[in-house]
Write a protein that binds this DNA or RNA. Sequence first.
DNA 1: GTAAGTTACGAGCGACGTAAAAATG
DNA 2: CATTTTTACGTCGCTCGTAACTTAC
Lengths: 281, 281
Amino acid sequence: MLELYQLEELVAFSEAGTISKAAEMVGVSQPAFSRAMKLLEEELDVTLFNRTSNTIAFTETGRIAAEYARNITDSVKKAKDGIKAFDRSLKTILIGSVAPAPLWRVSSYLSTIFADKTIAADLKNEDELIDGMKKGSYRFVITTKAVNAPLLSSVHLCEENLFFVLPEKHRLSGKSAVCAKELDGENFLLFEHIGFWKRRAEMLLPNSKFFVQSDRMAFETLVKNSTLSSFGSDLAYEKEDGKAIIKILDDLAHVDFFITGQRSENKILSDIVRAFPSLRS
Amino acid sequence: MLELYQLEELVAFSEAGTISKAAEMVGVSQPAFSRAMKLLEEELDVTLFNRTSNTIAFTETGRIAAEYARNITDSVKKAKDGIKAFDRSLKTILIGSVAPAPLWRVSSYLSTIFADKTIAADLKNEDELIDGMKKGSYRFVITTKAVNAPLLSSVHLCEENLFFVLPEKHRLSGKSAVCAKELDGENFLLFEHIGFWKRRAEMLLPNSKFFVQSDRMAFETLVKNSTLSSFGSDLAYEKEDGKAIIKILDDLAHVDFFITGQRSENKILSDIVRAFPSLRS
DNA sequence: GTAAGTTACGAGCGACGTAAAAATG
DNA sequence: CATTTTTACGTCGCTCGTAACTTAC
């Protein structure tokens, strides 16, 4: 019987060129390796090596055989990985979203419904998500537009409104609502992983500088202890002492989220929407 | 370590549907099979089967895994066959020819030159042979035209002339040469494996009927014991008592053969041509 | 003498089959 | 009760590593 270890050793020999190196490479002794190759030749009833008393080298057939062997060992590796990945995908519900805030509540809800599964999330841009949803990579995606596709169904999930978080001594901290351009040119602290909101902020405040922080803890500490302005939203709101919350009047500061799934999961979709308001991340 | 026998058993299960049948199919005991599948699951760290106390069936992952496994076992089989075939091809000189007669002498010569190799021959039509030669499937090909290709070289090998073999009481048996149309409409015995000569005979004698024999012995016996006419050629000539040999004047009864090989084998080609006249099959 | 490969030999892992048990219809 | 799968156990084969041998540079 042809054995996988023989094919792996054959491949190793094709890379190492000598039995001793190849044996070391795969972690067996030289004699074991030598025997394995001899058995392989017997098994195939073919001469794979030209031997002299103390050298060994591929015959033409040997080279061909090593190519076949490499294909097979590669396939085996891919099979292992593929099977494990597939199995994992069965145990995982993958959600895609253009922004993190609605994701939190949706994940939290789904983990109560699918207690035996892992909820995983991807932050991607709108087009990638819709493509991924159509291909079946995602169970649900959260986007800013409803998706129109044969087997999918989209429902309105929630809205999110961006607001300014200003230090109390800021000249506008007394107002309840402003236009973004009133603050354009000022500096802002910005948390990095906020999806499309980052681009929106740049469009609202084209002349401002943003100090981007990718670490959540560091970001929050900075907001608390600096006099820089930053952003908040009504979906991810934590009242801070010494900070004023100011509505932004521009359209760009408002967004509607839609959640999309297979048409057959309509019921789950409406459950999510119904539960959404009462959920906390 | 993942083992091939496990993959084969997995494939067998996917065909049989139960462990007992699958075990019988691959020729191991039921318990051995059951253990192998359990070890496979452990190895991959994945659930491949849904088990009840006395049933077992694939999970989705199991089905996927079986597909991977089938690919691999097929690859292994192809690899075995491919390696053996390649090795055999190294030990074989394959000649292609449009007709058998020149082949006999060429084979006989090559087998003295390459005493350690097997000489194999293919009877194919001209185009297939030239294609095959260009692709490297043939070591030499014998055709009726010189081949013009970059790395190949062709030389004139010999000529062959078809003649009628007529019973002595045939009305034309006294003549030394005739035109084919003088016999058109008469019946002929024809040996099947004579390459392009079959088509030539049909063109020379469009109104004749041919009694085709594929068995050599039967053909020769028929020729000897019937009063039917048949064909012979100056390359494959065996004088028969009671038969007259009549030249055919038509151009179609004459052919020149060229032998083609890699340019680098020029010397062998000229050796073949030089030796050809003195060779007997 | 060093480095390559092969031969010889004893040890241990693991895959096997037989036998028996458990569960279902 | 027949069929299917699993558990238990002893056996045998196969691959392993160590050690000793051969040959070349």
